[in-house]
Structure formats: C-alpha cells, structure tokens
Design a protein around this nucleic acid. Sequence first.
DNA 1: TTGACAATAGCACGATCGTTCGTTTATTTG
DNA 2: CAAATAAACGAACGATCGTGCTATTGTCAA
Lengths: 209, 209
Amino acid sequence: MSKGVRTRAAILGEALSLMSTDGLSGLTIGLLAERTGLSKSGLFAHFGSKEQLQVAVLQEAQACFTTHVIRPVLDLPRGLPRLEAFAEGWWAWNRSPPFPGGCPIQAASLELDDRPGPLRDEIAGAQRRLRAFIRQGAAMAVAAGHFRPGLDCTLFAFQMVGIAFAQTMTCRLLGEPEGLDFVRRAWRLQVDGALGTTQNQTGEMNHVE
Amino acid sequence: MSKGVRTRAAILGEALSLMSTDGLSGLTIGLLAERTGLSKSGLFAHFGSKEQLQVAVLQEAQACFTTHVIRPVLDLPRGLPRLEAFAEGWWAWNRSPPFPGGCPIQAASLELDDRPGPLRDEIAGAQRRLRAFIRQGAAMAVAAGHFRPGLDCTLFAFQMVGIAFAQTMTCRLLGEPEGLDFVRRAWRLQVDGALGTTQNQTGEMNHVE
DNA sequence: TTGACAATAGCACGATCGTTCGTTTATTTG
DNA sequence: CAAATAAACGAACGATCGTGCTATTGTCAA
C-alpha cells in the first residue's frame, strides 16, 4: 500500500489537529490543503466530498483514542486495575491529547448532537462504544469481586463520562491548574461508591427521604 | 423601548435558536438576516462586527438561562430545597431548552475552549458564574445543616457540571429515553454523599442513614 | 407637521467555501 | 524500459462569507 494511502493518513493527521482546535465546521478543505502542502483539488480527490472527509476524520479520532488510551490498558488484569489505568489514561488524554486542541470526540459530540446525519451517527457510535467499554470494565470489576454485586454499570459509565466533560471544562476552558485534582477526587468517590462493602445493602438504590 | 432595541432583541432570540443547532460558527449573518426578515446590512448595523454579534448572543444565552433556571429557584428557601429545585430545573433545561437545539452554553463551551479571545472569555465567565452559583448553593446547604460540614463545595459543583454534560450526551446525542433517570440517580448519589450523616467519618464517604 | 436622526435597504467588494474538469506529473506494474 | 494507472495540480464555477459604503425609509420629539 503506497503513496495514496500514506498521504491520506498524513491528511487525516493534520485534519485531526485542525479539528481539535477549530471544530468539525472549522475544518476547511482550503486550510487543510494549505497545511498539508497539497492543492485543494488534489486533497479533495482523496475523499470525494467534504462529508466523507469529516467522517474519515471522526474515525481517525476514534482510532487515535483507541491507540493511546484503550489498547495500553488491555494488557492489564481485568477489573479494577484495568479500570483505574484506563481512567488515568483518559484524564491524561483529556488534559493533553496528541493535538493542539482538546479531545476531538468530546468537541464533535456537542457540535453534532442536534444535526442528524452520517456525522452524528458516527460520533454517536463512538460514544456508545466508549460507554460500552466502561460498562464492561465495571462489569469485570464486579465479576472479579472488586466492585459490589448489583452495581449498575451503565450508571457507572454515565458518571465517568460526566467527570471527563467536567475535566475539559475545568482544565481547558477555565484553565485551572488544580483541575486534575478534582477529576481524581471525583473519580475516587465514584470508585469508592462502587467497591464491595462489608455491610452492603440494596445495591444502587440508596436514599430515603 | 424603541424600535432599535426591539429588533435587536428579536435578532438575538432568533440567533440563539440558530446557534443552539448549528453552533456559534454556524451562526451566519446572511442566514440570520434571512430568518429575521432583515437585510444583511441592516442586521449587521446593529452589532458592528460578527464577533460583537457573537458576544451578544452568548450574553443573551446566559440571560435566558438565568430567567428560566436560576431566577425561579431564588424564591425557595436556601439550602437543599433550592439546590434540588435548581437541579431539576437544570435537567429540564438541558433536555428541552427553549430552542430547537441543545443548551447553547454547553455547546459554546466546548467549541471555544481552545480559541483564546473575547468569545472564550465570555463563555468562560459564564461557566465560572454557574459554578460559583452551585458552590454557594452547596455552601448554604452546609450552613443550613442539610449538608455535612467540611463538604468541598467546589468539588460538588464540579461533579454537578459533569452530570449535566453526561445528560446532554445521553438525552440529545444518543437519544436514550431513560437518560433522565440516570441523571436523577447520579444526582441523588451525589446529594446523598453530601448529606449530614449520623455517624460521619473522615470525609467524602457517604451512605445512607 | 416638520425636521432631526435612527433604522433599514441596496449594492458592491474581496475572500473563501465546496466542487468539477481537463491536464500533468509520479508511481507502480508488466 | 515502456505502458498503464494512480496521484496531484491549476483554473474556474457559483455560492456565501463578513464588511464597507450610500441612499432610502421609518420613527419620534418639538
């Protein structure tokens, strides 16, 4: 596999950087051509349409996330160790991803959530897969006895996604240096709430009014 | 209130709707003029530049949020009642704000977090004020004895912001009908963890009374 | 009612958008 | 090495972008 595939990869890499700062709608063919040193038409020929380019970029972003965050933790033992390592890797990714801007998946998720079409489908799929990964990770921790039985792993994933977004707000938008501390403490609270407890009651339902 | 002010308000209202679906960068002067029935130049004269229009829209979004979510709960007693009402109002706003799209503040926050300038300053200020409101709300709950003393109200606000973003993902992007349930359960867990407990130990550990 | 002034329209500008097409240059293959 | 194919270019298109002007309309106080 040669030239064509290689330049296509280079284009997507540059596109990811551009998108991380300017968003999907800021990803323009002219600008991208300029940064890659290609002509507009030469670059365009690789994708056939702007939308196909955008889809390719979203897929590239997922692949990059998998490489940097998911794959490394798959070597670790299932359950809590893997989950903890994934968390730490995710926080690191969110704070300083391999792009000049922030996490492109988070950005695209809020950019596309009201515009039905192939782009939204793509990013929605990414979020679904991510949540499934977390959910299964939590389920493994339950199976391994690290987390208490009856834990709602879907809710667990929901909460973890929330922490990740709150991190982006704190670390990137507000630029607060202590942001990572809040992330870790919120995550610790969530994990502690999921641990197997000595006197464990009804499971997820807690409360009393 | 004179003509100019009235049309300006109408423009901003329409701009808010447009922005909620297409984002700040999708908010174009030509499109906005078309929707308001004005000419491009006529509309343009109200703001002087695109950036000033965008700033005005961001401020309008904050004003709208204050009117719909913040102000109503200020009548309620300080502490937990006000905080709970605010939460419920916020979830309602996130799921179905008075625009065709999702919450413009959330969307703009992730759109602008990597682009320094007046726009980012504006939305960062909005997020800071929102967090401060939550923090103070939690502090009032502590003062009223609803929440345990020593609660980290900043962390509390951090977590609540996370829930709100996770809600947008679930309810808007993924379109899961049970999304609001997760929101409420995550929020309940957070509140329970902050309540004054009978035997209160080291800190964040919670659990039921 | 008229005169002052705010509000809006009309038009044009340079730039850039996504896209098409024919041509030229590289690369791969026989 | 030559033929076949892939990759990239250059120029142009209609549309739309944000932004200046000037002229016209509308509003409001005297």
